[in-house]
Every structure is written in C-alpha cells, then in structure tokens.
Design a protein around this nucleic acid. Structure first.
Length: 138
RNA sequence: CCGGCAGGUUGCUUUAUCGCUCCCUGUGUAUACAGGGGGAGGAAAGUCCGGGCAACGUAGGGCGCCGUGCUUCCUAACGGGAAGAUCUCUGAAAGGGGAUAAAAGCGUAACAGAAAAUAACCACCUGUUUGCUUUUUGGUAAGCAGGAACGGGUGAAAAGGUGGGGUAAAGGCCCACCGGUGGUUGUGGCAACACAGCCAGCCGUACGCCUCACGGGUUGCAAAGCCAAAUAUAUCCUGAUUGCGCCGCUGUAGCAGCGUAGCAAGGUUGCCCGCUUUGUUUCCGGAUGCACACCGGAUGUCAGGAGGGGUAGGCUGCAGCGAUCCCGUCAGUGAUGACGGGACCAGAUAAAUGAUAAAGGAUGCUUCAUACGGCUUAUAGCAGUGUGGAGGAUUACAGAACCCGGCUUACAGGCCUGCCGUUUUU
C-alpha cells in the first residue's frame, strides 16, 4: 500500500513472523468445528474464512499427531519442514482483494517422514488449491 | 597385542543461501528497519524420591495408614551418595548382583514323604502269644506291647559333623576334636564387627504376622497475584435497619443488654476424642383442653464474604548473585568441604533454537595396488599386518516448558585412567 516501489514486499516475501502464524485458540476451535477440509497427501488441510488485521493473505498453523509420532524430535522435524515449505511458497497467495483471508491448519497424516523435496511439491499443490477455493466473485 | 572389568570424559565439523526467537544500541511517536550479541541435553526423557517456591488447611492429643530399616560419614534434604561390616549367589579373574532393625509371642511350609517339629514307613533290638521245625536252654514266620533317630528311602529343608566309649539295640547318653548358638573376659576398631581365651551339651531352616525406631498436612506454576474483555447475580452466611423471645429502665413509645444447655448435621483434607460453625427444641396458623407427630408461614433493603456464572487474551510469577557455573590450591581413603580467582550463560507459549545444498572428518564392509615377515604342494598360492586409491554404508539416544539435588531408563562411536589373564596364538 505505502510501498509503491515494492521493495519491502520483496524482502518480506520469505518472512514468516508471529503475525502470520495462527495462535488464537478460539479460531482454532472454530476451524475444527466449522471449517472445510481437503486432502493432499501427506496433508489434511482445514480452512475457513477469517478476518484479521494485517496485510497477509492467510494465517497458518501446523500440526502432527502425537499418536502417529510419539517422539517430540520427529514431530518437530516434520513441523519444521512443513513450515519451511510454506514459508518459501506462500508468496503465491497474493493479498489482493479478489481473495478472501483464510485461517489454515496443515495436519500431517503421512505414516513416514518425507524428505523436503516431496513435502515442497505437496505444499505447492495445496497452495494452488487454496487459491482456487478463495477466489471471490464480486 | 588381544579379550574383558570398573571409573571418568566426549558425543561430528565447515561454507553458502533463505529464515525463527530474545536482549542491547541507533533511526524511529505505535508498527517497522539497520547493526551487534545470546539461543537445548547428558540424559532436556520416565515423573520414581528429596527440596525450594506458592496457595489452602492447622489449639492439642491418641489410633490407624504409607514409606524407610547393618555401621559410620556426606548433604539444604532424601528412599540418594561415599567408605566399611556380615552372609549369600555368580564369574577363571578383575569384578558384578542381592540381603541385613529387634526378637517376647503367634502362624504357614506346596509336591513327595510315615512324619515338616510334643517325628517310628522299611530295616534294627527286647519281651510276649500263636503256628511251623525237631539242630529242643535253639531257629523261623505272623501278631501284640515297648525301646531306639545308627542305616534306607522322600524332600529346598529330616533334629550338628568325625572318631571312640557305652548299650539288648541305640542316641550329646558320656568323652576328644571340629562347626554353630548364648553368656563372659581381653585385644583391635568411632561403630557395624573381627580375633583370642574361658564357661554352658544349649544345637533345624525359610517366609510372614506382631513388635520397635525414624519420617510423612494437602495440592501443584493450569500454584498464586494483577489488568482487560465478557455473562449473570441461583443459593448460603455475616453485619446494619425493620422484626422475634426474655429481663430491666423511663413510661406507653423508645433505649440498652442477653439468647444458656441438650440433640443432630457440617468443618477440622483417613478415623476418634476434643475444638469450632450452623440448624433445631422458638413463635403463628391449619386445629379442637393438654402432649406428640405432620403440613404451611416467619418479610424487605443495603454492604461485605462464600459460592455460582463468565473469560481462555495480556502482564507478574519467569529468566534468577544462586544449595549457580568454570579454573586452581589445600584437607579427607572417598562422597564432600574450605579458600582464592574469574563468569553472569536459552526463555518459546499451536510452542523458537532451523531448512536446503555442498565439502570434509570418524568407523565398519567390498575391491584394487603396494610393502613386510611367515606357511605350503614353492617364478605360484594361502592367510595376516601396515600404507595408499576407488565404491557404497553408518554417523546414536533424543527436544527445555517454574527452578534445583538425586535415581532409573535409552545411546553409533571416540578418548583417558586403573585393574584382570580361562582357552588359543606370538
């Protein structure tokens, strides 16, 4: 908005600060009770339209089931790889008015810990699907 | 050298790109940007003990429950640790595992076995009855009465062991030596205890109950406090006012004071005594002389508290001058302590401390080359050791959540110190 040169946008492109992470317990509860979802292996993605301050197209959270992965180390590894894939590709979601703002949760349901390249591939497919879903027709 | 045991220590490195969180400085009113710096572990794990800290409870006493249980020491404390004592299992050894309060009383001991503790199944001995035999003051078989723990068999365990005397046959029945137990004296040790002497024939083992000593209030940082936001004052208690009962004073409307005791229930975070709080036995009516039982009523307002309801955001707690960490010296066998110097060292909260790529290191494996000495069926082959190259593999266990001290469990590999040497080889 106030950066016609687009420089800050360029810098902030790969940033992923606390404002872009989904922290509110209320929204998370709402997501699980009212949200829609789709599957792109190895993820289940839950999303809902949500309004929040800021210029970001979405707020995201990442989850790994404690039942599938009992050790904290492996859960951390999956969440870190997922977060990294989201951080590197979230610029594809633009913050135009043509798209509604979203709250997202990525739930890892794969039974094996995948390497980063295949995780990134799935993430790109997920983001394209979210784009499709959130087009607003005025 | 190799194999093993014990203790300690360490537990991948570098570069590039893109990020996360906290602190400081600067620009900057908020947001934000730039620079600099900090950012997982020895177990952060299990949540098994012990504390700190916090809230609540608590006059005091008794009983119960739970935990611990050789000795001395260490420690803030411990069920932890160090050094030691006795017994026992295991190992060739270095070592490793386990047990240990006291004993007055009581209980249990599967299967097998006659019997598991006031022992008699077989065999043994004595007496006697009957039968058989005639080797007739004997022998033998069966029964009865008794003696006897020496032999056999069972068992995890059978009433100390060996030898001798003694006896009908035997037996600590008696004696010598050995072992144990108890008493006692001496020596050593702070002590557990050890060793030695003397005395007593006193002589099964295991487990449990009981007993004794010491310790233990409960819940946990989602504790606890504050702010913001938000819903709703159901119910209960206390005080004031109005009102109830009794008594007193003035005097017919006010004022001041009191409400004992019994019973029941609750609280006292297992129970009881005790303590404490509340209710009731009070009044009126249904309802009729009295009593009991039953049903209904004994108001409203304000303030405070309990409780309920709401919230699930932020701040403090909470990032620590400390049972702190590092180095050194001294004391001590050691756990540990004292002193001196230096340091201030993660703080996330759907939860940071990373992701990706490349190179390197370490350790096995396969293969090739080469060097060394050895063996054989000897210009060759075999296995071993060292060095170098190539390929592929492995690089563990595991992630802080209020903080410490331990314990337990998991862990690829490397390093250091000390100790042991059964088999095989040199």
């Amino acid at each position: 908005m106030e950066n016609p040169s687009g420089k800050i946008d360029e810098k902030a492109r790969f940033r992923f600060k606390k404002e872009e992470r989904l922290c509110s317990k209320i929204i998370i509860d709402k997501l699980f009770t009212e949200g829609s979802s789709f599957l792109v292996y190895p993820y289940k993605v839950v999303y809902i339209d949500s309004d929040f301050p800021g210029e970001f197209p979405a707020k995201a959270a990442f989850a790994v089931s404690k039942k599938l992965y009992k050790k904290a180390v492996s859960r951390n590894l999956i969440k870190r790889r997922t977060r990294e894939a989201y951080r590197l590709n979230k610029h594809m979601l633009s913050s135009d008015n043509t798209y509604s703002k979203k709250a997202l949760i990525f739930i890892y349901i794969g039974k094996e810990i995948l390497q980063f390249p295949s995780i990134e591939k799935s993430m790109i497919r997920i983001i394209e699907r979210i784009k499709k879903v959130s087009i607003q027709y005025p």
